[in-house]
Design a protein around this nucleic acid. Structure first.
Lengths: 213, 213
DNA sequence: CCTCGAATCTTTACACCGACAAGATCTCTC
DNA sequence: GAGAGATCTTGTCGGTGTAAAGATTCGAGG
């Protein structure tokens, strides 16, 4: 790595390189740090990241992150907030588009697969400031969307215990996503989304929703 | 803390104090470190523990753990092994005693509640040496017991897709246990075992097994 | 009993990390 | 265009994981 090029090109590769001719202000260090964190978490897990390494990766000094996130937990708090908002968006969109109970479960698992770094942080409140108002808001939105979607859907669940049924649906998909992302599902087939469909069908015996494949 | 008492009392409180008159060899440092780790994990999570703090707690120098566990991940590997063996024992005993599908699920959740430190490590392979032969053995035993127990039980599940049903049962209880221990279940009732019963009943609509309360 | 190798523990050292404080540089508003 | 505030740097401190080398104790074989 030799970023000795003295030309004043602005943001040719804004993500990866640590350029020395960078202007004093990074431009969007906050986002760059979050992105670097997401990449690092995907590779080494949330416990393996270091603020200093992320700062190096973004081409800033080791103390630069302090001002954007108060501390390491602050950075992971931002990741959790982003994750819960993303999850809420995904669930809402899926519920409105398909109206299918099964597809909602699949969407939950798909979120865990497509955003593994977010998912690895969100449900680990010991890693971030769980009582931060932003994270409370985002988490609340996420659970609210999930609850209302399960409420308004044609219910394949035995209506005997509505609360238990909702929690069962959530637990089922969360458990599957967790087991998969922890690598505990070796020996099962290798397509987790197909697994999600088969598992979700166990809860809702309706053969297939006509709204989607 | 001033353990300056020069009396040569041997092991009056063998667990907690860091006594200076301790014999050069600890006696069972390995177990003491694991126990200290379990306590610390229960309080601060697996990410918050430090080998040096555990060594202090056990009253030995900071490098003493190296010989028993190769490194920090080695200590957590031992915790994971112990956890998987404990889980296998619990599940087997429950299956043989009650023969109830519902009770098996409840036992899974109960294990997560009664051994939170073990549970917090077991399904986080980025924290330990997941390919260690001992942990492979213990994990394999655990899943084998679970599989065979679900196989031999009177199946309340739709037999259409046996594999999916087994995975669904596992995912359901694992998800519930995970969500609970991450504190995501605020707003539900406060007894997780009762929750487990209600959730498990969602999967198996048989009202109640007569073998247990 | 005694000796010597191996197991266990200590001491020392090094690089890395998170957090803090103080100063440098840039930006933006009035 | 000047100053206030935001952003980043440099320097520092205690703590941590790991490795190497030395001290102490145990235990097996003479």
């Amino acid at each position: 790595m030799a970023p000795e090029t003295p030309e004043q090109s602005r943001t040719t590769t804004p993500d990866k390189a640590a350029r020395r001719d960078r202007p004093y202000h990074h431009g969007d260090l906050r986002r760059a740090l979050i992105n670097a964190a997401l990449e690092a978490i995907a590779q080494e897990g949330p416990a393996g990241i270091s603020l200093r390494a992320l700062a190096r990766r973004a081409g800033v000094s080791h103390a630069a992150p302090t001002h954007h996130f108060r501390d390491k937990a602050g950075l992971l708090t931002a990741v959790a907030v982003e994750g819960f908002d993303l999850l809420a968006d995904t669930l809402q969109e899926t519920a409105e588009r398909t109206g299918s109970f099964l597809e909602l479960g699949v969407a939950y698992v798909r979120f865990a697969l497509e955003h593994p770094s977010h998912f690895a942080v969100m449900f680990r409140p010991d890693l971030y400031h769980a009582s931060d108002p932003e994270v409370r808001r985002a988490r609340g939105r996420s659970t609210a969307v999930l609850a209302s979607a399960l409420e308004n859907l044609p219910n394949p669940l035995s209506t005997q215990d509505r609360d238990a049924a909702r929690l069962a649906a959530w637990s089922l998909m969360h458990g599957l996503a967790t087991l998969w992302s922890s690598g505990s599902l070796i020996g099962y087939e290798d397509d987790p989304l197909a697994l999600a469909r088969r598992v979700a069908s166990t809860l809702s015996p309706t053969p297939l929703s006509p709204t989607s494949q």
